[in-house]
Design a binder for these strands. Sequence first.
DNA 1: TTCCCATATCGTTCATTTGCGATCAACGAC
DNA 2: GTCGTTGATCGCAAATGAACGATATGGGAA
Lengths: 127, 127
Amino acid sequence: MGPALSPTATPEFQVTPRACPPAPPVDPTADPDEELARLAAAMGHPARIRILRFLLERRECFAGAIVDHLPLAQSTVSQHLKVLREAGLIRGEVDGLHICYCADEERIRRVGELLDAMVLLAAGNAR
Amino acid sequence: MGPALSPTATPEFQVTPRACPPAPPVDPTADPDEELARLAAAMGHPARIRILRFLLERRECFAGAIVDHLPLAQSTVSQHLKVLREAGLIRGEVDGLHICYCADEERIRRVGELLDAMVLLAAGNAR
DNA sequence: TTCCCATATCGTTCATTTGCGATCAACGAC
DNA sequence: GTCGTTGATCGCAAATGAACGATATGGGAA
């Protein structure tokens, strides 16, 4: 459970001070079953899906807007953001006073790819 | 948490005594966020992904083969099967002495559809 | 400096999940 | 009938997750 998010210390995501897209680290889980399960688990809560959708609609936004958008306490939302962040599904970046989050579309699409790979590979024999 | 699976009582899935494909009930969750979260949660465990992959590879097989294929106790596998069953991702059917399970490819593909809908709908504005 | 604002994190509580062994119910064989 | 086999369910313990309020941190404003 590393040191985690802190604007000036060793943030998990603030790899570059640019806009939101600082290339995801491409988690080296190696096992596609593990990777898919991890991603699915991160998406396995309605609040987190709502956060993802919200972030996909607005291309980006700061955390406060997400909190306002959900019927949950700020600390709870923050934890959901952490789960999504650790799965690489969203990225955040310190933008002055607040933190700008955005969805990592590539990572989200990766879920679909892993799914397709599983289904198609298997259905190859009988479909 | 209803009465659940029992070959002669009120099984959850044995809707027809036919082969594996007895049309899924299409859960009426209505809210796509809830539905996606439910499906994702059901897939959010490596053992369950492995079960899905296993069932997709062999088009069908009875539960014992799944147990043999995983490093888990029979009761544990049975529970994972229950989770997958309740999410509609697999279906089982009593076949003489054992139960024949098979993956519901349509339902699995539904996950990808829900994902795509979320991403594409949102990316519509800026991609 | 002091104060406020925006977020993360801590600590706690409660619910859920995971895993297991043991048991139960149904079936086929005998 | 009794067995053996198959697979679900129960009961439990441990681990994890969800939600919250309270607190900490760090930057901007006054």
